[in-house]
């Protein structure tokens, strides 16, 4: 941890994400506009002191929509990755620790899941859910992206299992569960964290892509993806509608990648 906060890459990423998360969480204190309040008399206004980032086709304040939409994007990233790490760590450690037939079964299952091109798998699952809600999307992204944490942790555990402190712990008579939970997983945690931050970036992008395709967050709720979808209809009329949500996605993904990169670097020190 000490290394981490001296790492400039991690720090810059951390501040970007901290800033974005902060303004999204405290959105009501930053803008007084309701993100879904329609005001047709103020449709498609360019940025001004009244509407800092301008308004959309229905006269809704873009800043408010970006901030509240950011909550959606970040929440999807967080929860989806949470689900995938949970499943991944559970399956990966079982496979790695017990080995043998269990490992074979789980590993082949991982291989099978990895065969599906993930975005198209997600697309078809979302299409199957007749009324895609935020929670369904979180769950779908989570349940389709647990394979790489699972593989990582399995490989990590395979090597940890041979280490002396694990053998020592086992020979002291500690239960297998306790050894996994207290001695192995904490030591395998690093690469998983790197992977988790990077896949959070991917999850944010997937949610935006789904919403952009009209399959994600449903109107009138805002998300960065569906703001962009609207912006597409106003290409050449309202530059602010595409530039700002684009920048928001860009910086979020950049920040998360920097954090992941920072953690990776400090692990190797």
């Amino acid at each position: 941890m000490k290394h981490l906060f001296r790492n400039p890459i991690f720090l810059s990423g951390f501040f970007i994400i901290f800033f974005i998360a902060f303004v999204c969480v405290f959105a009501p204190f930053i803008t007084s506009y309701n993100p879904n309040a329609i005001n047709l008399k103020e449709a498609l206004l360019s940025p001004s002191s009244r509407h800092l980032l301008g308004t959309d086709t229905l006269g809704r304040d873009l800043l408010a929509r970006l901030l509240y939409g950011g909550r959606v994007s970040l929440a999807v990233g967080f929860v989806a990755v949470g689900i995938s790490v949970l499943i991944g760590v559970a399956l990966g450690s079982i496979a790695g620790f017990y080995g043998g037939v269990i490992d074979e079964i789980i590993s082949r299952f991982i291989d099978i899941m990895l065969c599906f091109p993930s975005f198209f798998l997600i697309l078809s699952l979302v299409a199957l859910a007749r009324h895609p809600s935020l929670y369904i999307i979180m769950a779908i992204i989570g349940f389709t992206s647990w394979m790489s944490p699972a593989r990582l942790i399995r490989a990590e555990i395979l090597s940890l299992r041979q280490r002396n402190f694990v053998i020592a712990a086992l020979s002291c008579g500690l239960s297998q569960r306790r050894v996994i939970m207290r001695h192995i997983i904490p030591n395998a945690w690093g690469p998983v964290m790197v992977n988790a931050t990077l896949s959070m970036a991917v999850a944010v992008l997937i949610e935006s892509s789904l919403s952009f395709l009209g399959l994600g967050v449903q109107p009138p709720q805002a998300s960065w993806g569906n703001i962009l979808l609207e912006a597409k209809e106003c290409l050449g009329v309202g530059w602010w509608m595409s530039v700002f949500p684009g920048l928001a996605i860009f910086f979020t993904v950049l920040g998360l990648n920097l954090i992941g990169e920072g953690i990776r670097e400090s692990l190797h020190k």
Binding site: N36, A37, I38, L40, T57, L58, G214, Q218, P219, P220
Partner: peptide
């Protein structure tokens, strides 16, 4: 967009509308 406006306007008379695409 029309659905969103109807949703907004009917709320004024106390009718809740959900939109499904």
């Amino acid at each position: 967009k029309i659905a969103e406006i109807i949703q907004h306007q009917l709320k004024k008379v106390g009718i809740g509308v959900d939109i499904k695409v």
